[in-house]
Amino acid sequence: MGRRHHFHVEYVGHSVSATVEAGHTVLVEVLVDGKETGHGTTHDDHPVTVHVELPTDPPTPVSVRVTPAPGVPRCILEVPGAEDHVMSPARF
């Protein structure tokens, strides 16, 4: 089992969290408002993008881009037509 890293950001009143389990195979789980809405995997240092939706009316498609890299991974919330948001490390 690899090391787990947690990230979080608030966007338009919704909570977006990501858990990244680092190792040879990198596992990513994305939660929106506390509910698992997407997951992805990658290998070694290769980036992975997980597409999810915010529960707005109509739903807002967003993506969480994870770059495992050596050391602590980076997570960015990507919103079409808006500025990217760096997800802050969080303790769970």
Rank of each mutant, 00 (worst) to 15 (best):
H24C: 07
V30C: 12
P70D: 10
H39G: 12
G71H: 02
E36V: 05
L31I: 00
T60P: 05
G38M: 09
M87S: 09
V62H: 02
I76F: 00
V62R: 02
F7V: 01
S63Q: 15
V50R: 05
T41R: 06
E83C: 03
V72T: 13
P55Q: 06
V28K: 01
A82P: 03
G13L: 08
V16E: 01
V20W: 02
V9F: 00
V32G: 02
G2H: 07
H6V: 06
M1I: 05
E21W: 07
D84Y: 03
P58V: 11
T56A: 05
A82I: 08
M1K: 12
R3S: 03
D57W: 11
V50F: 10
G13W: 13
G81E: 08
V32K: 04
D84A: 10
V28D: 03
H46D: 11
A22S: 15
V9M: 00
V32L: 06
P89C: 07
P70Y: 15
R3D: 14
R91P: 00
L77H: 00
S15L: 10
E78Q: 09
D45H: 15
L31K: 11
G2L: 12
E78T: 03
V16A: 00
S17H: 13
S17V: 04
T60G: 01
T37L: 12
G34N: 03
G2Y: 07
M87L: 08
I76L: 02
D45C: 07
R74H: 08
T42F: 02
S17I: 00
A90H: 09
P80S: 08
P70G: 10
P55M: 13
G13S: 08
H46Q: 15
H46E: 15
E36K: 14
T49P: 11
K35C: 02
G34T: 03
A22H: 06
H46F: 15
V62Q: 03
V79L: 02
T25A: 10
R91E: 12
V86E: 13
G71M: 03
P59A: 03
V50M: 01
V62P: 01
H14A: 05
H51T: 06
V62I: 14
Y11Q: 04
V66E: 02
G38K: 14
V28P: 01
V64L: 00
P68V: 06
L31A: 07
A69T: 15
V28Q: 01
P59K: 15
E21R: 15
A69M: 11
A18N: 01
G40Q: 11
V9S: 13
P89K: 01
A69R: 07
L27H: 13
V52A: 14
M1S: 06
V50K: 07
E78L: 05
G40P: 12
T41V: 10
G38L: 09
E21M: 12
F92R: 15
H8V: 12
V32D: 02
H5P: 03
S17N: 09
V72E: 13
A22E: 10
R3W: 04
V16D: 00
D57T: 08
